[in-house]
Design a protein around this nucleic acid. Structure first.
Lengths: 223, 223, 223, 223
DNA sequence: GATGAATGAGGATTCATTCAT
DNA sequence: TATGAATGAATCCTCATTCAT
């Protein structure tokens, strides 16, 4: 499911006993995370039970708890790997390397990637689920959230280099909010309708950001 | 908590025997709904248990089930009353009566009301919670959702009288999505920061809608 | 449903206040018993709830308990009235007045009546249900049971005038057992198959009893 | 309580790791079934609760549900094992191998076995309980019922080789009905009285069946 | 590591019965 | 009488987590 993070796993073979064990552990973990992804996607995070995950993974509950102290930890690790995967796929920066990129292009690309990533890793949606209680993001989704925020902030800061940090943070949060709201709608539809929602999401983000991006070339009102 | 929906309750007092009984029941229902609102707000809808609601209301579980067949029904009734209250407070239409109202003003007023309503009825947030699985809105939140959508659609259609119905629907969904996303952020902050988020939400909505509102006077680019 | 047992209810009209009340009470009781019959028949005695009975009767649970101390009492009263009705319909004796009646005829008639009675009062089956634990007939079915036993014993004793009392009792119990077993099968089928089971039940009873009825004219082996 | 159905459990001991675990589970299952048998016997099937069974077995409710999804499943498994035990004890056929066996002998032996089996497994009675509503045998008792019917049919068909299938089925059902009715009476008494009822049951069955068994040697009227 | 058995508190829901009005 | 609200223990069942093997 995810790129192998232990690049060095084939490196030395001197201590193969513990190594094999670790390898086995890694496999188990991957297996469990994959199962968790399936279950989270199918039933939603809250409704997912550790027993169901273990069953889906074809292992016993006890085994699951040998690798994860609780459900939360599974979600966290899953989120971590997801973010790792995202970084591996799209690089560290979400944003444009080319300074000539217009906001429209940047947003378009970011949204497209965001959607594509979700389609490949549908669990992403389940893990990003907003808090049940405003302001209290569950710890298990926190890291994911933070990573996304920092990626978005990275992108934004290239367009808003002079923005006040507080404003930037706020804008970032708004963007993530719009993203999530749009994603929900996109995933709820299919075919042409889905595409239309993708377009709307891009519009919403572009238009929201455009007035803020006055100082930069290629900003939309320059058309 | 809610406006009395039995307008005729003071009308005739000849049959006060059955009346009094219903009154006690009505009081209990109100009490239970208030308790449910508290619990939903505190723990979120999913995590809320009927026993917890009964406990909060100071009654036994059995009493709760005398009035509501299950948690879902409580949420639905709560949503109904909330929508009723909203209609009573702000009138049937969300939108502007005065055709001279600018989009900015309309959105500003709508958002302000939306936020204010939420602050007075914090459970609103819990009941509006997006689905755990994309596209599968829980039945209990459906009616609330539909009502909100139709209110928003009403507002939008006065600004976009010529829009294609499918487009209008999509725009409506987008607006509700932005609303919800913004609301989450607003509620997560306080004081000046909250106000700032309110402003951002207004911006996001206005800017999203503005280009769609070409034919109307007062449209933002007319400035 | 049942013949009015208070023959004297129209007799004097001097104290009509309490009389009316009693009349009303009788109506309520009849109404409740009818509802109970419906519920017992539909769901079985054990699964029937007093609330369901009250609902079926269109009254409140409290009202039910004004007339019956508990579910058991309802069953008992229902059984009583059923037995009363049976006596009114078929007379005190189940058995043959005419000494020339053959056993076959007597059994045939008794079974036919038994079945017919059941079809008209389907709750009979529910009330006759055997004990869940051998030997411990529920109190609520006890009287019904006893009445049936005595009716059967009456019939049998006319055919077995010289039988040892203990034997007679045993035979009586056996007959009731066969009756009940057969009834279950009869009711479980329809049309021709039902008729066939009725025939089988008659056969089983006749053949079981025939050898015991040596001394009497018309005994089956005399053919 | 029951014969070990895992014949191969002593076979190989190479993989005793998984074996031991299964063994513990098997023990628990046996223990739970035994507890269920006790509770069913004591309170009747309907009144028995899963919690009561767990309590009787000295385990927590959760443990019970690790092995059985619900009460029904317990009853079914219990019935299965009972039938298995019956087959092991009395062989596949209920009936006479020796063609010279008279109906009387065959019925006598079958009844004796039936009663004996019940005395050793008193839960049998609880599981055979007739339906609360005619014709609607609970699923949990269905298999038991079917097995008994097929055993009886096997016995009968050796005596009634030329019978019409529909007649045979009907006769079979009648016999099981008589059996059950008689069993109830037998179990409700003790000592000499019980024996007397056993005799009556044999009589009832023999006499019921005798006329049907015309073509066979040893048929009762041939005496 | 792996298993699967075990836990027990907590979930929703029901029901016979009582009580205030 | 009649109502229907109220009770609370008991129902079945689930689940995160732990433990012996």
């Amino acid at each position: 499911m995810f790129a192998n993070r232990e690049k060095d796993s084939q490196a030395s073979q001197d201590k193969d006993q513990p190594r094999r064990r670790q390898a086995r552990g890694e496999r188990r973990i991957a297996q469990l995370l994959e199962a968790a992804a399936t279950v989270f996607t199918t039933t939603g995070y809250t409704a997912a039970s550790t027993n169901a995950i273990a069953r889906e993974a074809g292992v016993s509950p006890g085994t699951l708890y040998q690798f994860f102290p609780n459900k939360e930890a599974i979600a966290i690790e899953l989120g971590d790997r997801l973010m790792h995967e995202m970084r591996e796929t799209y690089g560290e920066a979400l944003g444009p390397v080319d300074p000539a990129t217009t906001l429209e292009q940047a947003v378009g690309q970011a949204v497209d990637r965001f959607i594509a990533f979700n389609c490949e890793h549908p669990v992403f949606f389940a893990l990003m689920h907003g808090p049940d209680i405003p302001g209290r993001i569950a710890e298990e989704h926190d890291a994911l959230h933070a990573t996304l925020l920092s990626r978005i902030e990275g992108l934004l800061s290239s367009f808003l280099p002079d923005a006040d940090p507080a404003d930037l943070t706020r804008t970032t949060h708004m963007c993530l909010g719009l993203y999530k709201a749009g994603l929900e709608l996109v995933l709820a539809h299919e075919g042409a309708e889905r595409d239309a929602y993708v377009g709307e999401l891009k519009n919403a983000l572009t238009r929201y950001l455009d007035p803020l991006v006055g100082a930069r070339l290629g900003h939309i009102t320059a058309h």
